[in-house]
Amino acid sequence: MPKQLLTTYTLHDLNLRNRVVLAPMTRGRAGKNRLPNAIMAEYYVQRASAGLLITEGTTISAQANGWNESPGIYTDDMESRWRPITDAVHAKGGTIFMQLWHCGRASHSNFHGGEPAVAPSAIAINGDYIHTPTGKEVYETPRALETDELPGIVEDYRRAAERAKQTGFDGVEIHSANGYLLDEFLQSKTNRRTDRYGGSIENRYRLLGEVVAAISTV
């Protein structure tokens, strides 16, 4: 192991004890109500010697859900349940970021009371199946988001970051890869929009840019 990996690192105003980072890995241990709990606290505390921990993907709204029993950060109860986790990590000298997540079309109507998942365009995932609350299901065609819905999603990200800050997180990571909502806007094969959020690279980036700008105000 290179010695430099174990040296300290300054990330903006954070002093990390080393340069090892725990990547976000979905555990699915938050239960049906998506509430952080003692098992999750134990998991992160066991890894607190890393310079930086990034949590599993944490959904910013009910609309954002698409993974069984992943945690959320969109209700007061969810927010308060994260506090023992951040406190426990900090007590071990650790630094922890929350990964903010919207599954977009990588979801299913079973997560949304029968309503379809949402996406930039009505294009289904070309895959075998998705695990849902009622078992394996084939991917469905999502509903294309209306232009006037997008400011609400940006606000969901901003509010999630605000909740994360209030509950003791040292920062957030915006999940914008791996075929989830923000990545779906970035990719031309999943974004066929004709409004100002589709077409050119600049337009396809627009939603992510607005999310970054909104979170930066927190």
Results as ranks from 00 to 15, higher is better:
F111I: 05
W82K: 01
A144T: 10
G94E: 08
I60R: 00
R19S: 11
E146V: 12
Y180V: 08
L11K: 01
A117Y: 04
T75S: 11
V218I: 15
D76L: 13
P142I: 11
G135V: 03
G198F: 05
W101Y: 14
R105Q: 15
A38S: 09
E210S: 06
G66Q: 08
P151H: 09
I85Q: 03
L100M: 02
D156P: 01
E79P: 02
E202S: 05
L145C: 09
G113R: 04
Q187P: 08
Y44E: 06
A50M: 00
A30G: 09
K189R: 15
Y44I: 06
A213P: 14
R204C: 12
L207H: 11
T217Y: 03
H90E: 02
E115I: 00
E202Y: 03
A177Y: 01
A48P: 07
S121Y: 05
Q99D: 13
G168I: 00
V211P: 00
P24C: 03
S188A: 06
A177C: 13
Q187M: 14
I153R: 07
N37H: 09
Y197P: 05
A48L: 04
R192K: 15
Y157C: 06
A48D: 09
Y180H: 07
S121V: 04
R34D: 00
G198W: 05
M25H: 08
R204L: 10
A38K: 04
L14V: 11
I201K: 11
A117F: 11
N178M: 14
I96N: 01
L182W: 15
H131G: 07
R19T: 15
H90M: 00
A91H: 15
G113E: 07
F97Y: 01
G127N: 13
R206C: 02
D183N: 15
L181D: 04
S188T: 11
S107F: 01
N37C: 09
R196H: 11
I96L: 09
I123Q: 15
P151G: 15
P71V: 13
L182E: 15
H175I: 04
Q99P: 09
H175T: 07
A213R: 12
R158C: 08
G171N: 14
N18E: 06
T86V: 05
S109R: 01
H108Q: 10
R192V: 13
